[in-house]
Simulated scan of single mutants.
Amino acid sequence: MTITATAPRAAAYRGRLRWWTELPLIAVIYALYSGARLLVRGDVNDAVEHGADILHFEQLTHLDPERWFNQLFTHHAFLGVPADFAYASLHYVVTPSVLVWLWLRRPTHYRNARTWLMVSTLIGLVGFTVVPTAPPRLLPGAHGFMDTMAQYGSYGWWGTDASAPRGMGHLTNEYAAMPSLHVGWSLWCGIMLFRYGRNWFVRALGVIYPLMTAFVVMGTANHYLMDAAAGVATMGVGFLLAKPALRVVDGLQARVRRRLGTEPVHEAVVAVSVAPGASAAPADKQQAAAPGGAKVPAPRTVSVPPGAPDDPGRDPGAAGGSGAGRGERSRMS
């Protein structure tokens, strides 16, 4: 017979996470994201040429829906204004909110998810550096795109420089269109909501949000369809690299702890074999002494050979004499 006690994994894992280390880490990655967009401006002529090349390729393959969406948002303010608000805000609100939600409700999955997002963001920064790309709204007028952020600027806080607040356009890089991290981050949020949400509404949001973001970035003339596809590919590569990155980080941390002599005592899972006729102490009273006087949590698994008492804490001779209890159980079986 096997007796298994399941520990509260979520509570135990949350104890390993510290907000005072997580917040600075996330802040550093976000600062790199914002700083790289600002510093890596590239040559304007090269950026415009790259944008025109992407649009030309899409036209050759008949995969250029951004012009149709842009005309739709330009001609209908009831679509264009909400799209501009979504582009200017959701990217910076929904992603941190999902991170906090994972921290509070899914702590066992938080670290992998956070690492996936961060690795993908760093890959996106490489794309901004290597391939500076002008969005459709910054192509010459002959291409026919309208900047809806400028058209509906009187409705919101943004100016004519992408989604930057008025007067702060010089603090953003307008030639960081490839890949679209708006689409990449929204895909990450959608997967988290769909996978870990417990009701249909949250899961539906996980499907709707990335699709809506893709339509918005194309309709506002801030990204091409190829930018959106590159954002999805970036998240795919980040997903593949997240676990190896965590293994490297964990290995480095363990090495540093060993050198400093501060390596923690890990929880042990102990298998206890109980011989026939012997009694096993209750699981909550079984503790083993670890080096240095620390105590290891109680064993989680107790293996009892056939023929031993069903109740590990019960004396075999109890319940009516030395053999009566065992004989009665034998007849019942």
Rank of each mutant, 00 (worst) to 15 (best):
T2C: 02
I3R: 03
T4M: 04
A7C: 00
P8F: 07
A10K: 06
R14M: 04
R16H: 10
W19Y: 01
W20H: 14
T21P: 00
E22A: 10
I26A: 09
A27C: 06
Y30E: 11
A31I: 03
A36I: 10
L38M: 09
D43A: 02
A47F: 02
V48G: 03
E49N: 15
E49I: 04
G51W: 15
I54W: 05
E58F: 10
Q59C: 11
L60T: 04
F69H: 00
F73N: 02
L79T: 14
G80K: 04
Y87I: 02
L90A: 13
L99K: 01
L102E: 04
L102M: 09
L104C: 05
A113K: 01
R114V: 12
R114H: 09
V119W: 06
T121Y: 04
L122Y: 06
L125R: 05
V131E: 05
A134H: 05
P136Q: 07
P140A: 10
P140H: 15
P140L: 05
H143N: 06
G144L: 01
M149S: 10
Q151S: 09
Y152D: 06
S154Q: 15
G156Y: 08
T160N: 08
A162Q: 13
A164F: 02
A164L: 02
R166N: 01
R166M: 01
Y175I: 04
Y175S: 03
A176P: 00
P179K: 01
W188K: 08
I191K: 04
F194P: 06
G197S: 08
W200R: 12
W200D: 08
V207T: 15
P210F: 00
P210G: 00
L211A: 13
T213R: 00
G219F: 03
N222P: 00
H223Q: 13
Y224A: 03
L225C: 15
A229D: 01
V232D: 05
T234E: 11
M235I: 07
G238I: 01
L241R: 15
L241D: 07
A242F: 14
V248G: 11
V249R: 14
L252G: 06
R258M: 09
R258A: 11
R259K: 14
G261S: 08
V270D: 11
A271R: 06
V272L: 15
S273C: 09
A275L: 08
A275W: 11
A275R: 15
A278T: 11
A283N: 10
G292Q: 08
G293M: 03
S303R: 09
V304E: 01
P305E: 11
P309C: 07
D310M: 04
D311T: 03
P312T: 09
G325S: 11
R326E: 08
G327C: 01
E328G: 02
R331M: 10
R331C: 05
